[in-house]
Lab assay of single mutants.
Amino acid sequence: MLYRITVRNADGEKLEIVVEMSEDEVRALAEELRKAGYEVRVEPIPEGEEP
C-alpha cells in the first residue's frame, strides 16, 4: 500500500515522502523516526488516488 510520510525536525523543516510498504513496515519506520526525535505523520493513500 502507498503511504505519505511527513517528517519534521526540531527546527520545523519538513520532508514529505511517498512509500510503498506494508502497514507493519511503515509503523516500524515511524517509530524509529520518533525515537530519533522527529515528529512523524503517516497517512495511507487510498487506491486510485494520486500520491
Rank of each mutant, 00 (worst) to 15 (best):
M1K: 05
M1E: 05
L2P: 12
Y3I: 03
Y3N: 01
Y3C: 00
Y3L: 02
R4D: 01
R4K: 14
R4M: 08
I5E: 00
I5F: 03
I5P: 00
I5D: 00
T6I: 14
T6P: 00
T6H: 04
T6N: 06
T6L: 05
V7Y: 15
R8C: 07
R8G: 08
R8E: 08
N9G: 08
N9H: 03
N9A: 06
A10P: 14
A10F: 04
A10H: 10
A10S: 05
D11R: 11
D11C: 14
G12R: 04
G12V: 03
G12Y: 07
E13I: 15
E13K: 15
E13V: 15
E13D: 10
K14W: 07
K14P: 12
K14R: 10
L15W: 11
L15I: 04
L15H: 15
E16V: 06
E16W: 08
E16Y: 15
E16F: 14
I17Q: 09
I17S: 14
I17E: 03
V18C: 05
V19P: 00
V19H: 02
V19F: 03
V19S: 04
V19L: 10
E20P: 03
E20S: 12
M21W: 06
M21N: 03
S22R: 13
S22T: 14
S22V: 11
S22L: 15
S22A: 08
S22C: 03
S22P: 14
S22F: 09
E23S: 08
D24Y: 11
D24N: 10
E25W: 02
E25S: 06
E25Y: 05
E25I: 03
V26N: 00
R27S: 12
R27N: 09
R27F: 08
A28R: 11
A28G: 07
A28E: 05
A28Q: 12
L29T: 06
L29A: 03
L29W: 11
L29C: 04
L29G: 01
L29N: 01
A30V: 07
A30D: 02
E31A: 04
E31F: 06
E31D: 06
E32T: 14
R34V: 07
R34D: 02
R34E: 13
R34K: 10
K35W: 03
K35E: 02
A36Q: 12
A36H: 06
A36W: 03
A36G: 07
G37P: 01
G37S: 03
Y38N: 13
E39H: 11
E39F: 04
E39Y: 09
V40N: 00
V40W: 01
V40F: 03
R41W: 08
R41L: 10
R41Y: 07
R41M: 08
V42I: 13
V42Q: 01
V42L: 06
V42H: 04
E43D: 12
P44D: 04
P44W: 10
P44E: 08
P44K: 10
I45A: 04
I45T: 06
I45D: 13
I45R: 05
I45F: 09
I45P: 05
I45W: 15
I45N: 11
P46M: 12
P46I: 12
P46T: 14
E47C: 06
E47G: 14
E47M: 15
E47P: 09
E47H: 14
E47N: 15
E47I: 12
G48V: 15
G48R: 02
E49G: 08
E49Q: 09
E49A: 13
E49M: 07
E49D: 08
E50Y: 09
P51V: 06
P51N: 11
P51I: 10
P51S: 13
P51Y: 01
P51A: 14
